[in-house]
Design a protein around this nucleic acid. Sequence first.
DNA 1: GAGCCTATCGCGAAGCGTCGCAATAAGGTG
DNA 2: CACCTTATTGCGACGCTTCGCGATAGGCTC
Lengths: 140, 140
Amino acid sequence: MTLADAIHASGKRLTLQRQLVLDAVQRARHHVTAEDIARRVRAKYPRIGPSTVYRNLEALEELGYVTHTHLDDRVTRWHRADSHPHGHLVCRSCGGETEVRPPALEAMARRLRELYRFEPDLAHSAIVGICRRCRDVPSQ
Amino acid sequence: MTLADAIHASGKRLTLQRQLVLDAVQRARHHVTAEDIARRVRAKYPRIGPSTVYRNLEALEELGYVTHTHLDDRVTRWHRADSHPHGHLVCRSCGGETEVRPPALEAMARRLRELYRFEPDLAHSAIVGICRRCRDVPSQ
DNA sequence: GAGCCTATCGCGAAGCGTCGCAATAAGGTG
DNA sequence: CACCTTATTGCGACGCTTCGCGATAGGCTC
C-alpha cells in the first residue's frame, strides 16, 4: 500500500506539508527532534509552522509510518517506524546512551505479560540509570 | 540526621520556602505535581513563584528527601523518597496506571546489569503499553 | 546585633509542545 | 470546471519547566 492509499483509506489528506514531514523523517539517520524536522522542511517550504509539524508527526504515527521515543530530556525524538526496534539506556550521570537489543527487551516484556498481562512497549521510553563506566568510578 | 543538619552539611540553606515545599511533598498521599505543591505552599506563603518550587524540589531531591517520576504525559510527579519503591505501567489506550511490585522490577534490573552492566532505575519512568483490559477488547 | 558572603528568591523571558480558531485547500460530485 | 464538505494549515495563546538577573535573606564572624 502506498502512502497515498494509506492516507486515503484513513480519511486523511495528502498535503504537501505532510509529505515533506514524512520525507524528512525517512531521510534522517536516527532520532530527530521536531525542530530538526521543521528545519529540513523549511528548506523547501519556509512557511510551515511548528504546530503543523507536530500534527503531521502525530498523523503519520497513527498511520504507522513514524514513531517517537523519549530519552531523559523533555524533547521528543522521532524516527521511521520500519527501522529495527531497540530500547535505550540513558545514564543520569554522564548522559550517555546505549542501545538495548531486542532479546533483552523481549525477556523483560515477557515478565510483564506474565505478571500483569500488560503488553509493554519498552522502546518507547529510555530506561534511566547509571552506565557501566560511571558505575566503575564511585566518586565523580 | 535532621533536615537542618543535612541541608547544612551540603552547604545549602534552610529557607522557609524550602521547608514548606518539603512539607507539602511529605504530606501528599502520592505523586503530586509541582503545581499541586505550589498550591499547598501558597496557602501559607502566597508569594512563592513556580521556579522556587522547582528549584527546591531539585535541591531536596539531591539531598535524598524527594524523588520524581515520569508517567506518559509531560508533567513531572513528585513524592517522598522514603515511600516504598515501585514502577508504573501506563496504558496508552485508556491511560490507566498499574503499580509494578519490586520483585518484577528487580528481575528486569538484573538482566540489564548482566547484559549491559547498567544499573537501572526502573521506577523513574513509567513503562508504556497496553493494559490487560484494553488488550482483551481488540477494537475500541 | 552589625556586617559580610553568597545561596536563594521572585520575576520575566524563553523553549518544547498543545490547543482553539478563522482561513485555506484536498478530494470529492455533478 | 464550479461547488461543497471538511481535513488541514498558520497563527496566537497557553501550560510545564528552565534559566538569567537583580534583590533578598540565611548563616557565619566579630
